[in-house]
């Protein structure tokens, strides 16, 4: 079982099974090869998770409490797992590994949205970003489980259970910060206001989503707009905060041309792999 994962199925210290779940190694070992368009779509979904995992990882040792440090770290690792699934599957189309795609692509080749690239800011800003992204991915994956592409459907099924927790975590904090002190409410509102211009990009029908959605492979991004915004408005209002009304920022095409942060994030994320290609431990 999962021998490729590099660990045994039994933890010798606790004698607790790691349990059965789809792993990126399963995706890699399967004979499924992504079609060109499907691979580009998987790359887009994976890049969002990868960049946000990198951003959240920065909270380690900096969160307001030890417990929250671990919570954010766990969420970052979940997202890194989702990225590994999507990048592994995307790579099957081009004979590339997940590491090839994560570490040896340049800024303009990434397809991440700008929402996940925004800096962590304070805890309120991070929670605002988490709220938007987790609500978006929850709506996305709960539809992608019915994808005509069996691998994408399986990845979505695995990721959905984890995102279920991510959105709960963000919503619980939004309610507490919103209903907490004047300062906590001010900060989380500022976080929502700062993130809002980048919400529209999530719903942009960029290439090749429209074609793939017609084939039943992808979820059309624009179809997610209403359900995601409805749920966001509801929770923001419940928290006693104001749903921002900012228009979408110019250049919502995931190209990176209008991205302020992407290059810096990649520089940090990729430096080790590029200085020591093929290094392992």
């Amino acid at each position: 079982m999962n021998s490729a994962a590099g660990f045994t199925s039994q933890d010798s210290a606790t004698r607790i099974s790691v349990g059965d779940a789809l792993t990126p190694e399963d995706v890699s070992a399967s004979s499924a090869v992504a079609a060109e368009d499907t691979a580009r779509y998987a790359l887009m979904l994976g890049d969002d998770c990868l960049i946000l995992a990198q951003r959240l990882g920065n909270w380690i040792s900096r969160a307001p409490e030890l417990e929250e440090d671990i919570a954010l770290g766990n969420i970052a690792l979940d997202l890194l797992g989702h990225a590994r699934f999507f990048l592994t599957y995307a790579g099957s189309a081009w004979g590339k590994s997940e590491d090839d795609l994560a570490y040896f692509r340049d800024e303009e080749d990434f397809r991440s949205c700008r929402l996940v690239e925004q800096d962590n800011g304070d805890f309120g800003k991070t929670i605002a970003r988490q709220l938007i992204f987790s609500f978006y991915t929850h709506e996305l994956y709960s539809r992608l489980v019915d994808s005509a592409d069996a691998t994408l459907a399986a990845i979505a099924d695995k990721a959905l259970k984890e995102v279920d927790y991510h959105q709960d975590h963000a919503a619980q904090w939004l309610l507490r910060l919103g209903g907490g002190t004047a300062e906590s409410s001010r900060r989380v509102q500022a976080g929502l206001d700062a993130a809002w211009p980048y919400v529209e990009e999530l719903f942009a029908d960029v290439e090749p989503t429209e074609r793939l959605a017609e084939q039943g492979v992808a979820v059309l991004p624009s179809a997610l707009r209403e359900p995601v915004l409805d749920r966001l408005h509801a929770i923001i209002t419940e928290a006693g905060l104001n749903p921002p009304e900012a228009k979408g920022a110019f250049g919502a095409d995931r190209s990176g041309r209008f991205s302020e942060h992407r290059g810096f994030i990649l520089a940090e994320m990729q430096v080790l792999a590029r200085q020591h290609p093929g290094a392992s431990w």
Partner: peptide
């Protein structure tokens, strides 16, 4: 044990701290 602001968050922190290895 753990620290948490209220019961709901305590349950979530417990999930993160004490069940992350499928316990």
């Amino acid at each position: 044990s753990l620290h948490a602001p209220d019961a709901a968050m305590a349950l979530r922190n417990a999930r993160d701290l004490y069940t992350r290895r499928n316990e």
